[in-house]
Computed example of a mutant assay.
Amino acid sequence: MSIFRRLRASGPRVRPELDDVQLGRVRRQLGSAGRLAPDDIQIDQVERLLLEAGRDPDRRAHRFAVLAEAAAPSAFSRSWRLRRRGADPMVFEGWVELVRGRAAGRMDDARAAADHCYRAAEVAPGDPMPWVVLLGILRLMRAEPRQLYAVLAEVTSRDPWNREASLQMLRYLSPEECGSRSSQLDFVETLRASAPPASPVAGVELVALVDEHDRTAAKGGVEALLARRLWTHSRAAGALDAALAAWPRQGHLRHATALADLNLLAYALVQAGRVREAGAVFEAIGDTVTEWPWSLDGDPIERFTYWQAKAL
Rank of each mutant, 00 (worst) to 15 (best):
A193Q: 13
S157L: 09
S234L: 15
D186W: 08
P57M: 08
H62S: 08
H233L: 14
A193D: 14
G54T: 07
P293I: 01
L140M: 10
R181C: 02
V275I: 15
A227G: 05
R83D: 05
V201F: 04
Q42D: 13
I301R: 06
A121H: 04
G101Q: 02
W247V: 02
D211S: 12
A143D: 05
C178F: 01
R163F: 10
A256M: 13
I41S: 13
A266I: 01
A202L: 05
A113H: 04
L259I: 13
S32W: 09
A217F: 04
S199F: 03
L7T: 13
A236D: 00
T290C: 15
A33L: 08
L185F: 08
M1Y: 14
R235Y: 12
R27K: 07
R25A: 11
L30A: 00
D20G: 01
I285H: 02
P293E: 06
D127W: 09
W307A: 01
A68E: 04
S10A: 15
L312Q: 12
R163Y: 12
K219N: 05
H252V: 12
R254A: 12
R81I: 03
A245F: 00
A280T: 13
R15I: 12
R192Y: 00
G298S: 10
R158S: 03
E277N: 11
A311P: 03
R60D: 02
L253W: 04
E176L: 14
G94T: 02
A124E: 12
R254F: 08
A236I: 05
W80H: 06
R215L: 13
H233F: 13
A110I: 03
A153D: 14
L135Y: 04
V96I: 11
G34A: 11
T257I: 07
L230E: 01
E212Y: 07
F64T: 03
A217W: 01
A65T: 05
A239G: 11
V275E: 09
A110G: 11
S234Y: 09
E93N: 11
R84M: 06
R27V: 00
A72D: 04
R81D: 08
S180W: 08
P145H: 08
H116C: 13
I41K: 12
R5N: 14
G251M: 10
Q45K: 15
L185S: 06
D186L: 12
L230K: 02
A284D: 10
G286P: 02
N263L: 07
L7C: 14
R55M: 07
E205Y: 02
P89Q: 00
D214C: 11
G126V: 14
A121E: 03
D261Y: 02
G298T: 11
R303N: 13
A268R: 01
A202M: 09
L170Q: 03
E144Y: 12
A143T: 00
A120G: 10
S194W: 02
F282E: 04
R228N: 08
R81V: 05
A70S: 10
A71S: 11
V281T: 04
T156H: 06
Q29T: 11
P175W: 04
T156M: 09
E144I: 13
Q184T: 11
P300D: 11
V46N: 03
V21R: 06
S234E: 15
Y118E: 12
Q271Y: 06
